[in-house]
Design a protein around this nucleic acid. Structure first.
Lengths: 209, 209
DNA sequence: AAAATATTTAATCATTTGATTAAAAAATTT
DNA sequence: AAATTTTTTAATCAAATGATTAAATATTTT
């Protein structure tokens, strides 16, 4: 494939629609999104949407799948790395996910609200159960509990706290920004501080005294 | 007002509509809710909705206001109590909010998603700025920082972490329940454990060594 | 270049959905 | 009990919205 071909594909109509759909779906959710919003965002005729993707639902399905896979699949790899300690895993998750979400800050709210509207359908696709039940992380956690290095026996609390610390500020972003009249840059700086702080906080929370 | 009158009012058509609207709006959000869903949930004719509340938007407005006030106003009182220490405030917030949300678990997601869809309009109504900038809590926090009892100088991190630990599990509820095939009761037990744990975690995170 | 195929557009359809209306029924007042 | 007011219902409207179609344009293949 030539350079011009690949460039052409990047900005092809199909890609334009997908990109516009992402933007609109992320910000408004499925129900509040009009197909006309997507067409307008893409600068294209409405009929192209159905020409390329057959229906709003199908298009959404594609966006959602890609988003979920992009968000969660990395997690599985990190949590199954035999070469990193528990502490290192926390560090890597905090850093990578904060960087990832800063680039696409609407994703957490998007995922959580769309799962609310269709829990069964979407959850089947995500390897959450494997992560929580069979991962290297879980083994390491249980070992640490046995060695009394960790005071909390339930790994679910550990994961909830870690993900909560990482993700919650993005979900509450409008409230946080409104509470102190922050601009996006200030908000992002606040969040970036947390890349270093979260691993320290988690360590303080869970290491047995 | 007689007993029968008050009982009648509790189950009056207007109350039935409000109650049904709460249920449907909480679970699906404004955009995904059809006025017909509300009428059906209430077991009433669709036209009654407009007869009593004039429009879907007006009805939503009422539900939302009541929900927001109920959720946040208590917080302001707790954080402005001169008679409780920082540590006690954390304990009270964790306990009260977990009890509150267990009764209406959809509220956090409802609030956060509806704020996303209309940040300016709704945030004006909430006394977030006063809480974060002028509360007794803030004074106590700053004193503790000066006395080097607390290592983290920014109260926003403290509040984000506290609220994140309390609220995030409810937002991620479908994922958490799906991850281990939990029933609602098991999920609630997991959450109830956190009433005691969160104050301990917060203390561990923030007390200077 | 001609033919065939793929893409795009404008117009239109059918359904959904928020809202209204006029009449019926119920409750309240006189 | 009659008159009046309030509440409820069934039918319908109008706008929004997802989707389709047929024709026009562009691209690719022969």
């Amino acid at each position: 494939m030539s350079v011009s071909e690949s460039k052409k594909k990047d900005t092809s109509t199909e890609e334009k629609i997908k990109s516009a759909a992402k933007t609109v779906f992320y910000n408004k959710g499925f129900a509040a999104t009009r197909t006309r919003d997507i067409a307008e965002e893409a600068g294209l005729n409405l009929a192209l949407l159905n020409y390329y993707f057959r229906s709003k639902a199908k298009l959404f399905e594609i966006i959602m799948s890609e988003t979920f896979v992009g968000f969660i699949s990395g997690m599985k790899v990190i949590l199954n790395d035999e070469g990193t300690s528990l502490e290192e895993k926390v560090k890597i998750i905090a850093e990578r996910y904060i960087d990832f979400i800063i680039k696409e800050p609407e994703i957490p709210t998007f995922i959580l609200t769309e799962i609310r509207n269709n829990p069964d359908g979407l959850l089947k696709r995500l390897p959450i159960r494997e992560i929580v039940n069979e991962s290297v992380f879980i083994k390491q956690f249980q070992e640490a509990v046995e060695k009394k290095e960790i005071s909390e026996p339930n790994p679910l609390h550990f994961l909830m706290n870690l993900l909560g610390l990482v993700v919650f500020p993005f979900i509450a972003k409008p409230i946080i920004m409104g509470s102190r009249n922050l601009e996006t840059e200030q908000f992002n700086n606040l969040i970036l501080e947390r890349k270093k702080k979260i691993p320290i906080w988690i360590k303080a929370m869970f290491t047995a005294v």
